[in-house]
């Protein structure tokens, strides 16, 4: 009953030379809320499209419960990919109505909950007869959320669901997500680049940068490996000698560095009273990891 969604050695190349994804290995186990974190253009949507057979991988394999996802109707019915809505379609403005999307979802998703959908539509103040190209950014995001939630799919994927929402609406979404998770225990994969406020929601995170997986695992365990060490330049340099330094900044005589270390090294570091050691949060860790890469390149 519990199935894993998995990508192995996933590579996606566009136009012969643009590698959107490069050898991605990722596992999404059942009953967990995942955060898929990445900058704009990192490859999040491409990854999600490949996972849901909407894009054809150049190399690699995607499976759900051991079965290939590609052209597999039974599997695709168990996965909901709620994408960012666009007011423009291929041929021009998106003249589909809100109710068209809801109707189509009802036809395709075997677990679709119509009552839940109606409740959410009312709660969000969405007008069923309104056309997509006439909806505000906030409303577009809310429609994405309604489709995802009411799908009741065992794996529910939301691509940038809070992109168009203001801070109050975003909080409402996180609450809604946790409430639903409490009841359904389904797997959620939420892609976002708004980190600070969402970090506590994600049990696990997948960090994606330039088409490659930087890190994946338990959010808290990952973040606890990083520390910000600051103080006098010489003291800091001595304290972090031999440790993995990700980034550093200097201001006059003081210096601040981001280090990554295990529990043992941390203890040694903490015994050093000449420097200040501060914990990091997910956002700071992500920035350190991605800008660190820039430096190496």
């Amino acid at each position: 009953m519990e199935k894993t969604l998995q990508a192995k050695a996933l590579t996606k190349v566009y136009n012969k030379n643009k590698k959107a994804l490069d050898g991605v290995d990722v596992v999404f186990r059942p009953g967990c809320i995942y955060g898929l974190i990445g900058r704009n253009g990192a490859g999040k949507t491409t990854l999600l499209s490949c996972l849901t057979a909407q894009a054809n991988p150049t190399q690699g394999e995607i499976t759900y419960g051991g079965e290939k996802v590609w052209e597999n109707a039974a599997v695709l019915g168990e996965i909901c990919f709620a994408r960012e809505m666009s007011p423009i379609l291929f041929m021009g403005p998106n003249t589909y109505k809100v109710k068209d999307y809801l109707r189509a979802a009802r036809m395709y998703y075997p677990h679709w909950d119509e009552a839940y959908a109606k409740r959410l539509v009312e709660q969000f103040g969405l007008e069923p007869k309104k056309r997509i190209n006439a909806l505000s950014k906030g409303m577009l995001s809310m429609l994405t959320i309604v489709l995802a939630m009411a799908s009741m799919a065992p794996i529910t994927i939301l691509d940038e669901p809070v992109a168009g929402l203001d801070v109050v609406a975003r909080e409402q979404f996180y609450k809604l997500l946790l409430e639903d998770y409490e009841n359904t225990q389904r797997t959620f994969i939420v892609s976002t680049h708004i980190l600070e406020e969402a970090a506590t929601i994600f049990e696990e995170v997948v960090l994606l940068d330039k088409g490659k997986i930087l890190e994946q695992g338990n959010t808290e365990e990952l973040v606890s490996q990083f520390h910000y060490v600051s103080g006098k330049k010489e003291d800091v340099e001595q304290a972090v000698e031999g440790m993995k330094v990700l980034s550093q900044e200097t201001m006059g005589k003081t210096k601040g560095v981001v280090v990554r270390c295990g529990a043992e090294q941390l203890e040694i570091l903490q015994q050093n009273t000449t420097v200040d050691i501060s914990p990091m949060n997910l956002q700071k860790v992500f920035i350190a990891l991605t800008t660190s890469n820039c430096k190496e390149a």
Binding site: I33, K175, L178, I201
Partner: peptide
């Protein structure tokens, strides 16, 4: 989880 708005 609900009170603190965190993952259960």
């Amino acid at each position: 989880a609900r009170m603190f708005r965190i993952n259960p």
